[in-house]
Amino acid sequence: MSDTVPMIHEDALPGHESKLTPEPQWQPRYKGSDRLAGKVAIITGADSGIGRAVAALYAREGADIAIVYLLEEDDAQETKRIVEAEGRKAITIRGDIGERAFADEIVARTIEAFGKIDVVVNN
């Protein structure tokens, strides 16, 4: 399994969510209705922005989450904390989804952690 850092210039990427202006608003507070109870979701780009919002709200609805991200480890760990605060399990997987071998690794690691995959959000 690969933990190599992709060869991408960081200035060309969206970067850390904490540096975005205005800050993304993804925190509506409501009790989930368990629409995704027992489901497992892979969400790419889940370290920030729309991907983080999807991860948080899928967790609120009962899904466990595989958080796939490219570079921002601190953002990915914050998304993991958010998912776990919703009472769900989360794993983080770092790499470039443009590489076929990494896509295969995402599937293998998700199945290893959760036993299945029900939803893939290619954000």
Score class of each variant (00 low, 15 high):
45 G>L: 01
46 A>S: 10
46 A>T: 07
46 A>Y: 06
47 D>Q: 13
47 D>R: 11
49 G>T: 06
49 G>K: 09
50 I>W: 12
50 I>K: 11
51 G>W: 12
52 R>H: 06
52 R>Q: 07
52 R>Y: 03
57 L>I: 07
58 Y>S: 09
58 Y>V: 07
59 A>R: 08
60 R>A: 01
62 G>Q: 00
62 G>D: 00
62 G>M: 00
62 G>H: 00
63 A>I: 01
63 A>S: 02
63 A>L: 01
64 D>E: 13
65 I>T: 01
65 I>F: 02
66 A>K: 04
67 I>Y: 03
67 I>S: 02
67 I>G: 03
69 Y>D: 03
69 Y>P: 05
69 Y>E: 05
69 Y>N: 07
69 Y>T: 04
70 L>Q: 12
70 L>F: 13
70 L>K: 14
72 E>W: 06
72 E>V: 13
72 E>Q: 15
73 E>V: 13
73 E>P: 05
73 E>T: 13
73 E>L: 14
74 D>R: 12
74 D>Y: 10
75 D>P: 10
76 A>E: 08
76 A>D: 09
77 Q>E: 15
78 E>R: 15
78 E>I: 13
79 T>C: 11
81 R>V: 05
81 R>Q: 11
82 I>E: 04
82 I>Q: 03
82 I>A: 04
83 V>A: 03
84 E>A: 09
84 E>T: 10
84 E>L: 10
85 A>Y: 13
87 G>W: 00
87 G>C: 00
88 R>G: 04
89 K>L: 10
90 A>M: 10
91 I>P: 05
91 I>M: 11
92 T>N: 06
93 I>K: 04
93 I>M: 02
95 G>W: 09
96 D>A: 08
96 D>P: 03
98 G>I: 06
98 G>Y: 10
98 G>H: 10
99 E>D: 14
99 E>N: 14
99 E>G: 07
99 E>R: 15
